[in-house]
Design a protein around this nucleic acid. Structure first.
Length: 735
DNA sequence: CTAGGGATACCG
DNA sequence: CGGTATCCCTAG
């Protein structure tokens, strides 16, 4: 039996296209439950009298943990693991005991993993043609142990690798177990027991979308939540703390449905503390929540009692806007029962409607009290202007500012004004001698280096406003009808742009793009942070020899992601205020071992920013995908991965560039190996109107290599973002 | 009064 | 669900 299983497993690994540890291998061998052991509840138990028939999912979902039998899930638990058991049952009626047992084993493994016709109907699997026919067939082949599946065909295993760069493969490995987790935990009813952990571990490496459909998952969760609920009610706060510390942070979070008890606790909590006191509710020792966050509570409450929070907000708004004080208690918000019955969506099968009596029974008799928190009110452009005025008048006396009726801040608190001012006018805030918050400090380091010189200029021109950057580079029409570049939109002309939106690209892309991927840096022999992901083309030296005057000015323009460059490529290429190159005095050595290739070829007199498009500038594109990469960088292997897009901008002599007009593939077509066409339809239509100047020579060229798979590494600076940025810029320039 | 940090709301 | 804006709380 064992060789057979081994064979099956080997083949299973092959057939299921798993590249790493199969979750099954983490699991104990299937076993027959002890007579006293609770029979599995659910599909198998219901539809199959044989208690040994348990689907793979039971194990994957951690259902086999030996918990006390959970009450059967409410209803409509559609069969998930049944078919296999049914098939086996039907197919081996004549088999003797021994072979039947063997068949059960092989059936469970092989049928699930190998046999398309008998596998779980809801399980997704690859039908890639490599699958070995099942060893067990209905014509009695299961009695012939010699009819084994074909041996694993190892080479084929690699034929359908996920399109993921090697660097990211590790994410698909099971996370390292915590020290105490290297041994399987005991099979107990404790939450730290085997079932739950295994379920999580499997969940960690197996995204829920893979291999299981939604219904299965929900079914499993159904049981799981009963269990966790039961366990939660037995947990003390201290135990919860311990558990919290013990749990590894999952890469793929498993869906964790709300148990009835949790919902009760939540509603009671809201009843007790009022809407909005999520943290209090969460931490109240009488309540037990299964690893919820305050936001979870809020979301759940919104789901349970739709309209309630909103209603509360309206009330609060009414009160704050009239009296500036918190809401009173004389209003009549929805009662619990009202809100319980107000189900906006189609009611789910698992929704347990509570009668009012039940709610009263759980101690909820009064309407939910609204939060004492003031309603959130965004600052308008007018507010911001008034902030400026107030600042001129009162400096940083926020109280005085608030009390100035002309400014209309009567419903704000002084600290609100301060917070807003700090966010909106960080430079002024700094100049006033205050400190920015750490995050803001990142963007506006006090010791202004070259990086911020332009910033000062622009802020002076716009009344101290720092240059905001659009989240996506796009053209906007200002009120006066002119097309404006959002990157330099000023307070008065950008009322439709929210400040936080504008700043996002800076926040997102500014820090080292590798900081979340320590492996990238750790592989670096030089080990120094702050490296830019720019890798120079191998021909850089040739190019530099040929273009000595340009070597210093243009190379850096590809990807400005060095630590002190506060702008991503397009943030800084507005061409009005900011000359990114002025911020970069990168010695040649500083950009020689980076992740992206750049072979610039711009004459020093033209706009040095490679992807800036002055009307008569030379835009160099080519379909030459031949990239010469420096292989010393760990990213070079990434960049050679077939699914990496590549944009190549060849060298263009000024003379020919200005005179020769060529029709070239659209920029997106310059992306090598990119699966998705990231262009919008409009852009795709636009492509046929595009023409490019290209180099009529050959050889060295500017090569901008980017990668969709690098995008997560590089934030918005590289990857698809840059591609989109290229396109946006094309659009903006009217190509 | 500000600094600092936490909590919550809101948005994508 | 994560990021950001807004609001809240408290120490000093």
């Amino acid at each position: 039996m064992e060789p057979r299983i081994a064979t099956l497993l080997g083949d299973a690994a092959l057939a299921s296209d798993r590249t790493t540890v199969d979750p099954i291998s983490l699991l104990p061998p299937p076993r027959r439950p002890l007579p006293v052991e609770p029979t599995p509840v659910g599909d198998d138990g219901r539809s199959n009298s044989n208690p040994t028939r348990r689907s793979e999912y039971d194990y994957l979902a951690g259902e086999h943990h030996g918990w006390p039998a959970a009450p059967p899930p409410p209803q409509s638990r559609v069969k998930s693991g049944v078919p296999i058991a049914e098939v086996l049952n039907d197919e081996e009626p004549q088999a003797d005991q021994a072979t039947a047992l063997a068949a059960r084993f092989s059936g469970r493994l092989s049928d699930i993993l190998l046999d398309p016709s008998k596998q779980h109907p809801n399980k997704r699997r690859k039908l890639d043609g490599h699958t070995t026919p099942p060893a067990v067939t209905s014509n009695g082949n299961e009695n012939n142990p010699l009819k084994l599946p074909r041996l694993p065909q190892l080479p084929k295993k690699t034929t359908r690798r996920p399109r993921i760069p090697p660097l990211l493969q590790g994410l698909h490995q099971p996370p390292p177990l915590p020290p105490e987790g290297r041994l399987f935990p005991p099979i107990t009813g404790e939450t730290g027991g085997f079932g739950r952990n295994i379920g999580e571990r499997v969940g960690l490496r197996t995204p829920p979308e893979v291999g299981r459909n939604r219904r299965d998952r929900e079914g499993d969760n159904e049981v799981e939540r009963e269990i966790s609920s039961a366990a939660a009610s037995n947990r003390t706060t201290g135990e919860k703390e311990q558990e919290k510390n013990r749990r590894p942070a999952p890469k793929y979070k498993k869906r964790n449905r709300w148990s009835e008890q949790e919902t009760k606790d939540l509603l009671q909590g809201v009843s007790k503390f009022g809407i909005g006191s999520w943290k209090k509710i969460l931490e109240w020792p009488d309540f037990n929540f299964d690893h919820r966050t305050a936001v979870d509570l809020k979301d759940r409450f919104r789901t349970c009692c739709p309209g309630q929070a909103e209603k509360e907000n309206e009330v609060a708004s009414f009160y704050t806007s009239n009296s500036g004080e918190g809401p009173g208690l004389n209003k009549s918000p929805m009662t619990v029962s009202e809100c319980k019955h107000k189900q906006p969506r189609k009611p789910r099968g698992d929704t347990h409607k509570k009668t009012e009596a039940e709610l009263v029974e759980m101690g909820i008799e009064r309407p939910f009290e609204p939060s004492k928190r003031r309603r959130r009110r965004e600052f308008t452009e007018e507010d911001d202007q008034n902030l400026l005025k107030g600042h001129e008048k009162y400096k940083c006396s926020w109280h005085a500012m608030r009390d100035d009726k002309d400014l209309g801040f009567n419903s704000r608190h002084p600290t609100d004004l301060r917070d807003r001012f700090r966010i909106r006018y960080p430079e002024l805030y700094q100049k006033a001698g205050y400190r920015l918050k750490p995050k803001e400090q990142l963007l506006f380091p006090k010791d202004k280096g070259e990086t911020n010189s332009q910033e000062s200029a622009s802020s002076g021109a716009s009344g101290g406003q720092r240059p905001d950057t659009p989240k996506k580079t796009q053209s906007l029409s200002s009120p006066d009808g002119h097309t404006t570049i959002p990157a330099i939109t000023t307070t008065s002309s950008s009322s439709n742009l929210r400040a936080h939106t504008l700043r996002q690209p800076l926040l997102n892309s500014f820090p080292s793009p590798f900081e979340d991927f320590p492996d990238v840096n750790s592989e670096d022999d030089e080990g120094e942070g702050g490296r830019s992901p720019i890798t120079l083309n191998r021909n850089i030296f040739q190019w530099a020899d040929a273009n000595p005057s340009q070597a210093n000015t243009t190379a850096a323009s590809a990807y400005l992601t060095t630590g002190d460059a506060g702008f991503n490529l397009f943030a800084g290429m507005d061409g009005y205020h900011i000359n990114p190159l002025a911020t970069l005095k990168l010695p040649a050595a500083s950009i020689t071992n980076n992740g992206l290739s750049a072979m610039p070829s711009y004459p020093p007199t033209s706009n040095p920013l490679a992807l800036s498009f002055p009307s008569n500038s030379t835009v160099h594109t080519t379909t030459n995908m031949g990239m010469n990469m420096i292989n010393t960088n760990p990213l070079s292997s990434l960049l050679r991965t077939p699914n990496l897009p590549t944009i190549v901008f060849p060298h263009v002599p000024v003379s020919s560039a200005r005179n020769a007009m060529h029709n070239l593939p659209p920029p997106a077509d310059l992306l090598s190996g990119l699966d998705l066409d990231m262009r919008t339809e409009a852009q795709q239509q636009q492509q046929q109107h595009l023409g490019y100047f290209i180099d009529d020579g050959s050889g060295s060229g500017v090569s901008y290599a980017s990668s969709s798979t690098l995008a997560p590494l590089m934030g918005q600076v590289g990857g698809a973002g840059i591609v989109r940025g290229v396109w946006d810029e094309f659009e903006r320039r009217g190509f």
